[in-house]
């Protein structure tokens, strides 16, 4: 009997030891609450697949440290979070243009960050084709963080703190740009917005007010061609007829194709109510003005999206109802989740 209980204990202990490590491995979505990247039930398959960058908690925490650390900027004053603040839906602090190192002004509005793992490309002009290489732009742009990759690597490799962290997370003795970028992607890929009032309404967990319901109907009749549910963007580039004089040529800078003149990526509308001002240059500060100009006042330029010109104007009541609906896209879970906050 004694022998058998000993046997039993040993087998139990053995299986525990054997399987403990597997807990951090990325797994397909399951109902129980375990930490890790999960595809929300209403979402499509993500673009980012953690290839050569298997998700672990240590790597995520390292990415989080880096996201908040100004060591990544030339004069150690600005971090990613400086312009992508959690309480603002990972957009800037309600300013039109962000401020880079030494007070220089950037040329475009810092976008809100969420559901980045589903993005086929990045930036207002879509110039960046992969989540991992996106940080290269703000890190090295002289108007943003202004640092060089070699400068960052030399600072990180001179830090015993970061050398230990990268050793723990990636088992490397020397910090490389690949590991730096992969660690940041571990964090940014986890900024998932799928638990707004809208999502809960779709899941049948809460009810909408009459205005919100009317707003959703109006939205589906007028907006989903570009702001497609559930990500609220179709990732296309469109000229929405803002003007014919601004210098920023948008997508044309990447494709060199004049038909892409002043086209910008359709932004997701998740957290839209708290991430004003709007448009690539932050020209509109309220949803009301935005709707007036965007839906009711698009200019007929040579490459304005024809759909926008055909949309019938919104009445004042319809405008208010759409705004009520847009407010349901604020993700209080994402902007309050402590696992994403400054470490």
């Amino acid at each position: 009997m004694k022998v058998f209980s000993l046997f039993f204990c040993l087998v139990l202990l053995a299986s525990f030891l054997a399987c403990k490590k597997d807990e951090l491995v990325i797994k397909p979505y399951v109902e129980e609450e375990t930490w890790g990247f999960k595809i929300p039930s209403t979402f499509p398959q993500p673009d980012y697949k953690f290839e050569n960058n298997e998700q672990t908690r240590l790597r995520f925490e390292l990415g989080r440290l880096l996201f908040y650390d100004p060591i990544l900027s030339l004069n150690n004053t600005i971090s990613c979070a400086s312009c992508h603040a959690q309480e603002h839906g990972f957009a800037d602090h309600n300013v039109a243009m962000s401020t880079g190192i030494n007070g220089v002004q950037t040329t475009r509005n810092a976008p809100s960050l969420s559901n980045l793992a589903w993005y086929p490309n990045f930036m207002w002009d879509g110039g960046v084709n992969h989540l991992e290489v996106q940080p290269l732009v703000p890190l090295t742009n002289p108007l943003e963080m202004g640092e060089s990759i070699l400068g960052i690597l030399s600072k990180l490799n001179a830090s015993s703190f970061y050398k230990n962290k990268f050793k723990e997370a990636y088992d490397v003795d020397v910090i490389t740009d690949q590991k730096l970028l992969q660690a940041i992607a571990q964090y940014t890929s986890m900024l998932i917005s799928a638990n707004t009032k809208y999502d809960q309404y779709i899941a049948g967990k809460v009810d909408f007010t009459t205005s919100e319901k009317n707003g959703l109907t109006l939205f589906r009749n007028n907006c989903v061609a570009c702001h497609t549910e559930p990500l609220f963007t179709d990732f296309s580039y469109r000229n929405i007829g803002l003007d014919t004089i601004s210098e920023d040529l948008g997508r044309e800078l990447i494709t060199q194709n004049p038909t892409d003149r002043r086209k910008f990526k359709v932004p997701s509308l998740r957290n839209v109510a708290i991430t004003y001002p709007y448009m690539h240059d932050g020209r509109y500060f309220t949803l009301s003005i935005l709707l007036d100009r965007h839906i009711n006042g698009a200019l007929d330029t040579e490459s304005t999206d024809p759909f926008l010109l055909s949309v019938s104007p919104l009445s004042p009541t319809e405008k208010l109802e759409i705004i009520e609906f847009l407010k349901t896209l604020t993700d209080f879970y994402l902007i309050g989740d402590p696992q994403f906050s400054q470490p």
Binding site: E51, N52, N53, M123, G127, V128, N129, H130, L131, E132, V133, L136, V137, T140, N141, I149, L150, L153, T176, D177, Q178, L180, L181, Q182, A185, I254
Partner: peptide
């Protein structure tokens, strides 16, 4: 060109990668 952060000869630290236009 479209597979994210690379290493060795293809590392971005070789300064042979267009950051703004991947």
């Amino acid at each position: 060109n479209v597979s994210g952060a690379q290493t060795g000869a293809l590392a971005a630290s070789n300064l042979m990668f267009w950051n703004w236009n991947s």
